[in-house]
């Protein structure tokens, strides 16, 4: 049943090239709190997240997220891809966040105080306000992750899909990001589906673990 909080797969087959990531999988799992998508390197976690956003097509079956097909669900989802962005490193961090606000609309993004304040609010929420005016390329890995998280939070998403948000961070930075994710789920009611190999850093913050292995997906 298409429940607004569920991730629902009905006979889903998903491939990346010759590799089968999901082989005729049927599963319904609630998407509340923090859900960890676990699996080995190359198991297809990133491809699965992209399929949830409609960026990768399913070979067969039906996938519903938040009760909607990916093409519609993506409008209420914030996405943070794997790895640090290497584009436009000379632009200030706050401009990266502002560009994501209503970024799919046609026309010119006119400068406005409200947009700037909204971007600053998100950067403050992710602990990135102090370096918001520095070019992205001058920030450390942890600082850039915080800016990317602020980007993902633009346009009030109901859910975040985060691809390896803890990768390449030291223990302190990992702890800070995990605390932030916990705050987002508890205080703002945002559900999170993330991939990570840093299960220790996540501690007891996870609501459930989805395991992706050999073409199957199970809780």
């Amino acid at each position: 049943m298409a429940h607004p909080d569920n991730l629902s797969l009905d006979q889903v087959t998903l491939c990346a090239g010759a590799k089968t990531i999901l082989d005729n999988v049927t599963l319904t799992v609630p998407m509340t709190g923090v859900t960890l998508l676990a699996g080995r390197n190359g198991s297809g976690k990133s491809t699965f997240l992209k399929a949830c956003l409609g960026l990768v097509r399913l070979q067969s079956g039906v996938l519903l997220l938040k009760g909607q097909p990916p093409e519609l669900a993506c409008r209420q989802i914030g996405y943070m891809p794997q790895g640090l962005s290497d584009t436009a490193l000379m632009i200030p961090a706050i401009s990266h966040v502002m560009a994501a606000m209503k970024g799919a609309r046609w026309g010119i993004p006119l400068p406005s105080r409200a947009r700037r304040e909204d971007a600053e609010r998100l950067l403050a929420l992710t602990g990135a306000l102090s370096f918001a005016r520095r070019p992205l390329g001058l920030l450390s890995g942890g600082e850039r992750q915080r800016v990317c998280l602020a980007q993902a939070l633009t346009d009030n998403p109901k859910m975040l899909l985060l691809d390896e948000p803890l990768a390449a961070l030291d223990h302190e930075a990992q702890h800070q990001i995990v605390s932030l994710l916990d705050t987002l789920t508890r205080d703002l009611g945002i559900s999170i589906l993330l991939t990570s190999h840093e299960t220790e850093a996540l501690g007891g913050k996870m609501s459930r673990i989805l395991k992706l292995k050999n073409g199957s997906l199970h809780v």
Binding site: S85, T87, H96, A100, G103, A104, Q151
Partner: peptide, 11 residues
């Protein structure tokens, strides 16, 4: 131009 992956994900 700034975030091709995220932009595509947002439609």
């Amino acid at each position: 131009s700034l975030m091709p992956d995220v932009a595509q994900a947002r439609g």
